[in-house]
């Protein structure tokens, strides 16, 4: 009864030939899609330029970002060799803007990365194990979620005291709840699919299933959401600095610069606006990039 009409031999060669190259993973397809998105490319180039110039600032601009000069205060852009002018203490604006990128970019990325690790882990655990575990984690998260994020950040920074490290901690705490929420809902969806059931049927333990089956399926959506928080983080961090709760003088930070140049806005409006322009440029780029990422994920099917 078992004349094998099913084996490979039964298939004529024409059927076996393959038209498309196989084995294109989700991330490869995502990458290809992003590379065809012009907006994403432009944003990526802008952000890379800002990041690289921040990292290599000492070689790009020889001036000292902390060297003040009472004689050269608030020079307009282009004057006496200062490409973007000077600030209220006579420091080179261009130099400070580039150095300021270091603080602002790290304050945009670091809290989001930390919050993604912590919040993502909490959300995945809550979503995968469900029931009481979920209840416990998500209700605690909900308490934090009840406060508006800016208010929460200000309050926490206020309690912890001013300083870059403290504002980083408070921003991380602010971003954990929303990321955990997203991670939990994505995980719950994935968890109910048959392939997780099939993995359990092999006798695999929960951690193994989470690491090998869940992570690859939930990281995409979680990262997409997290990327949209980077610009928020930059803005809140700048806001904290502006309020005197973040970076302290004389550190070069866009938010702080915006604050100290505030008084000069009628004297040297261009100089005063420049840090704001940088914040705007960076956060808009991150936002658009995050949007492109989401679109690319949507069309993967």
């Amino acid at each position: 009864m078992s004349t094998s009409t099913t084996g490979l031999a039964a298939l004529p060669p024409a059927v076996r030939k393959v038209a498309r190259p196989p084995g294109r993973s989700f991330w490869m397809r995502l990458g290809r899609h992003l590379l065809r998105d012009r907006v994403a490319i432009v944003c990526l180039v802008i952000l890379l330029a800002i990041a690289l110039s921040a990292i290599f600032a000492p070689w790009l601009v020889p001036a000292d970002p902390y060297k003040t000069s009472m004689l050269r205060r608030l020079l307009p852009p282009g004057e006496r060799g200062y490409l973007l002018g000077t600030d209220e203490l006579g420091r080179d604006m261009l130099t400070r803007l580039l150095y300021g990128g270091r603080v602002s970019l790290s304050m945009g990325l670091a809290p989001v990365v930390l919050a993604t690790l912590i919040g993502g882990a909490l959300g995945i655990i809550a979503g995968y194990f469900g029931r009481q575990v979920n209840m416990l984690i998500m209700r605690v998260i909900d308490v934090f979620y009840a406060f508006p994020s800016v208010l929460l950040a200000v309050a926490m920074a206020g309690v912890l005291g001013a300083g870059i490290m403290n504002s980083l901690i408070s921003l991380t705490l602010v971003f954990i709840p929303p990321i955990a929420r997203v991670a939990e809902s994505v995980t719950t969806q994935v968890r109910n699919q048959d392939f997780v059931e099939a993995a359990r049927a092999t006798g695999a333990g929960s951690w193994r299933i989470i690491v090998e089956h869940m992570l690859a399926n939930v990281t995409g959506p979680i990262l997409t959401y997290a990327s949209s928080l980077v610009s928020v983080s930059i803005i809140i961090a700048s806001g904290l600095s502006f309020l005197g709760l973040g970076a302290r003088p004389p550190i070069a930070d866009w938010g702080l610069m915006l604050n100290t140049l505030r008084q000069a806005v009628y004297v040297a409006p261009l100089n005063a606006v420049l840090p704001g322009v940088m914040i705007f440029l960076t956060s808009v780029s991150f936002n658009l990039l995050s949007d492109s990422l989401r679109t690319a994920m949507d069309v993967r099917a």
Binding site: Q193, A199, G203, H213
Partner: peptide, 21 residues
């Protein structure tokens, strides 16, 4: 479709259970 992990290749999917044991 739903019973295969979309991020695993055919070989990875089959090998998973074998690694578990």
């Amino acid at each position: 479709y739903a019973s295969l992990n979309p991020r695993h290749t055919a070989a990875q999917e089959i090998a998973f259970g074998l690694r578990v044991i």
